[in-house]
Computed example of a mutant assay.
Amino acid sequence: MAGRRDLQAALTSDDQGLAFVFGNKKSSSEQIEAVVAQVPQQTVSITLIHTSFSFAPNRQPYRHFYDQAQITAWAKGEIAKNGIRSALWVRPMPSQPDEFELIAGLRRLKAAKILGLAEVPVRVFELDDAAAYQAMRAENRDREEPTPLEDLDGTLNLLAIRLDTSVPEVISLLYRMDNEARGKVANQIVLGSPKAVIVEEVFADSGISWQSFLSSRLRLLKLPAEILDAIRESKLQYTKALEVAKVKDPEARQQLLDDAILEDTSISDIKVRVKQENRSASEKTTLRSQFDEVYKRVKKSKALEDPKNIKTLQKIMAQLEQLAGQ
C-alpha cells in the first residue's frame, strides 16, 4: 500500500516514485490520499499563494475552464458553511521560499478569495518541476474526468517535461513513431530509442497506448486556432466551443465565438445559431454555383449575338454591376 512507503521517496522526481504516486492510473484515490496525508496540513495567508504555474510548460493550470458563476454559488453555499475541507497543494516558490506556488486547488483558492478568507489550509510539498506537474495532473484527474483537450494538453506537457523538450517536438516525435510503426519509412530510427522508451512508459502509466492517444486526441489540434485559444484561455467551455467549431464559414464562426463569449450563450442557443449559419452558407454556395453555371451557358449560347436580347442583357448587366458595387 502507498501509505507504507517512505513519503520523500514517493514524492521525489525519480521515475519509480512518480509513477507509483501520481503517474500510475492503477493507483487508487485512497492510495494517493494515504501518501498525501503524511504531509502535515497547515494554514497560511492567502496572499502568500501564487498561481504562476512555473512548473508547467504552458504556464497554465491543468483545467481550461472555471465557471465563475458556479464557483461563486459553491463558495457562498458549501464553502461558507463548511469551510475548505480539502487542503490546497503548494510548493515553496523557487525564487521566494517563504511564499508558495499553487500546485492543485485553484477552484478552492478562487472560492476563498470570493469569500474574502484571509487564510486557507495547505499541504506543502518539496517538489521539482517534473514532480509538481505530475502531482497537479494526478490531483485534477482524480477529482474530475478531464475534457479530451485537457487530457491532450496535459499529456503533451508531461511528455515535454519527461523528454526535456517542447510540445511541438513531442508531437513530431509521436508522428515519427507512428510512421515507423506503420512501415511508412524504410529505417526504424525512433522506435526503440531512449525517447520512445520514455513515451511508452508515460502511456503505460496512463492506461492507454500512444497509438490510441495519437488517433483519438491529437486530431483535436486540427480545430480552428481561435477555437483552441478560446478553450485554453478559459473564455469558453469545451462543449460550447466544439459546437461553435462546426460553423463552416470562418467569419461567421468568429462572430458566433465572440457572441458566445460575450453573452455567455447557452449550448442549445449555440446549436441553433450553428444550424442557421451553415444553412445560410449552404444557400450562398448554391446561389454562387447557379450563377456560375448560368454564366457559362450564356457564354456558350448564341443569346449574346441575338439583337432581341441586347436590351434585356443590358438591364441584367446593370443590375449585376449595382449589386457588385454594394
Results as ranks from 00 to 15, higher is better:
13 S>R: 12
164 D>I: 10
34 A>I: 11
194 P>I: 13
133 Y>I: 06
312 T>E: 13
258 D>K: 14
110 K>A: 02
292 D>V: 11
252 A>G: 03
319 Q>K: 06
207 G>F: 04
284 K>W: 08
11 L>Q: 06
232 R>D: 07
152 L>I: 10
198 I>F: 01
224 P>W: 02
62 Y>R: 10
279 R>M: 10
285 T>D: 13
299 K>E: 03
86 S>F: 09
5 R>V: 14
167 V>A: 08
250 P>W: 05
160 A>V: 06
305 E>K: 12
323 L>P: 04
189 I>Y: 08
267 I>Q: 12
118 A>T: 13
90 V>K: 03
234 S>D: 06
111 A>K: 01
7 L>N: 03
197 V>F: 02
8 Q>V: 12
4 R>Q: 14
77 G>M: 12
247 V>W: 01
217 R>P: 07
134 Q>M: 14
188 Q>I: 12
242 L>N: 04
110 K>W: 02
5 R>Y: 15
159 L>N: 01
222 K>D: 06
96 Q>T: 10
225 A>H: 03
229 D>N: 10
117 L>S: 06
21 V>W: 08
98 D>V: 10
99 E>S: 01
291 F>I: 15
283 E>S: 11
316 I>P: 05
97 P>S: 08
16 Q>R: 13
231 I>F: 00
115 L>M: 10
6 D>I: 10
127 L>M: 07
227 I>F: 03
104 A>W: 06
180 E>M: 02
33 E>C: 08
144 E>N: 14
283 E>N: 09
5 R>N: 15
311 K>A: 15
122 V>P: 00
306 D>T: 09
141 R>F: 08
98 D>H: 14
110 K>E: 02
119 E>T: 11
229 D>A: 14
92 P>H: 01
28 S>R: 04
34 A>H: 11
323 L>N: 07
264 D>Y: 08
113 K>N: 12
227 I>T: 08
124 V>T: 13
65 F>S: 00
81 K>H: 09
89 W>I: 09
